[in-house]
Design a binder for these strands. Structure first.
Lengths: 338, 338
DNA sequence: GTGAAAGCGCTAACAT
DNA sequence: ATGTTAGCGCTTTCAC
């Protein structure tokens, strides 16, 4: 009650000087008391703390930054507009940074180099302590700039410069997980349907699938079918596949969208899943995978983990312990019913 | 060439003092020259600009903030982890803020009040100029706090306090657009399948649909079917609907996920879409709507526009022109083939 | 037209 | 144990 009238007029943020005045000490003493530095009588500390509490004081991050040269802030540049992939990555980054009491500036470059330079400039003007670049495709991208005053970590889309610090998913390992699952559930005639050959992820997963099959003494049933990352392509490809390789009993798909199309395509051609054909997707896009018929078994690439690792590596680099090079995060299989 | 060796050693950001030294003027003059203030000889301005360019100087935002009390920074608090809804909203916000040269801090409260308070505190310590709260549901939420030193705008999820500035979608209008489309394409027996009754959006859209139908002298075919926001529910509800109201020729769905399930359910019961039954969804979630069979006609709620409006309103409020109250953004119909 | 000086809010070094 | 001072990088008076 007593302060409801007072707080209604809350105009100015309390500064350290206000606390000093209220506690009857000097600003320097307040600083020491609140930061646990110097040597002060416990009674003084308590008095200062009380005064600070009463005024709702907390120190200005801006002033601190000016003094320390650090802002406890990092920039996240996403190349796409926070899509399917950058979002979990960002959540992971935030997770990691939150622990270090850092905040993140969000910048969306929309795949436009001009915009990217603009954001980079703004971030440097703001003296961010570091930068994370989150891509939406696994294809390597050219580095931000070769001479930056702060550390940079590339997440999901690696930098073309192997010296840069990048965190990527284990594409071939993901394919291996899928193939292993199919083989272990008794499939022998396994086909691969995926996205555009121009995408590194499509090429890598196809190569990984072939490798893994070879280790089981098997080979892919027919050539990998490259197309688009769409359900329409998946349905179309499923029909085509049944024409060219009618005796398949397993399909590994380059992503869940395609897998879902394939599931519908196969089912509507009269095949029972998973009895007659086993199906594994990639991405673990939950809404999609759960609604598929049957619910889709798929490889989770560990995007959040990529984000967390990227955040951790950035924090380490900021603290003077850079870990250059490419760091690989392994995914895991999410078994549903397909 | 000459500077490639120099830049390799780029250690310290150039400060205004460096520029001043190089241009042979005082710091004050540099400031004036670069900001177009004061009265200086054009020759001096040019010399300063040249020096600044050469050193790659740009002023420290931190120092400026300390002086001006403004940070040209806003906080975005999303209650969910940047999901389907907050993402387009955020993109809109960024669009709007970018114009004003503001940057955004991203905070994810994960629907946890504790975490929210924590983020709020951090944002205030950083002296953000304003805050946007982006929700993932249209249900009204309690305000952040009643006595904040900076303006707040609620996006998508309005504040329970009508005095607060909120930007929301026109839920009833969205339903009206859907119904109008169905009626205009000749449907007369129109049913409604939607999400949980506990969600304001489900209730509002159902009410809007009834209203709009009434204006055409029609009424809903059967009661609205409330369930979950899932495809499984959509499929189930479609079958149920055909049992209770076999002669329907149109269905409006509370969102695209449900609509997609309904499309599959109806098609698999032997109905042709859109010939026998017209279908309209809500949300315009492109991946989903485009892959539906047939591609789904749906209402776009204008989420990006909500974000932009929220950004604009926040900027205005920061400039001293607050516009309290609830601002409504109207959606539009995206006609595909259903 | 330009320079010198003060100050934004804080902390670290040095006095007392 | 506490107070005083200087200074982080910039802008803004106010002298000159």
């Amino acid at each position: 009650m007593t302060d409801s009238t007072a707080s209604r007029a809350m105009t100015r943020r309390a500064g350290i000087a206000d606390v000093a005045a209220l506690a009857g000490v000097s600003p320097g003493t307040v600083s020491k008391a609140l930061n646990g530095r110097g040597s002060l009588r416990e009674e003084t500390r308590a008095r200062v703390r009380a005064a600070a509490d009463e005024l709702g004081f907390s120190p200005s991050t801006v002033a601190r930054s000016l003094l320390s040269g650090r802002t406890f802030t990092v920039g996240i540049i996403t190349t796409d507009s926070y899509g399917r992939f950058s979002i979990p990555v960002m959540r992971g980054v935030e997770d990691s940074l939150g622990v270090g009491e850092m905040d993140a500036f969000l910048c969306d470059s929309r795949d436009d180099p001009i915009r990217e330079r603009h954001h980079l400039r703004k971030l440097l003007d703001r003296q961010v302590d570091g930068i994370i670049v989150a891509g939406r495709r696994t294809d390597a991208r050219r580095p931000l700039s070769d001479d930056l005053p702060v550390p940079v970590v590339y997440a999901f889309a690696r930098s073309t410069d192997p010296q840069d610090c990048s965190v990527v998913s284990d594409e071939r390992g993901a394919a291996r997980l899928a193939i292993e699952h199919l083989v272990k559930t008794g499939r022998r005639r396994i086909a691969h349907i995926t996205g555009p050959q121009s995408h590194a992820s499509a090429r890598e997963r196809a190569a990984g699938a072939a490798e893994a099959l070879a280790e089981f003494g098997l080979e892919l049933a027919g050539d990998p079918l490259f197309g688009g990352w769409t359900e329409v392509w998946g349905r179309f490809a499923a029909a085509q596949l049944l024409r060219s390789v009618p005796d398949i009993d397993g399909v590994f798909c380059g992503n869940d969208v395609v897998a879902r199309g394939v599931a519908d395509g196969l089912r509507e051609s009269g095949l029972n899943l998973p009895e007659q054909v086993g199906l594994v997707g990639t991405d673990n896009w939950a809404v999609l995978a759960e609604a598929a018929r049957p619910p889709l078994t798929t490889v989770d690439l560990g995007l959040e983990e990529i984000g967390r690792r990227a955040g951790d590596l950035l924090l380490a680099a900021i603290d003077g312990n850079p870990a250059p090079g490419t760091h690989v995060v392994h995914g895991h299989l999410v078994v549903r019913e397909s």
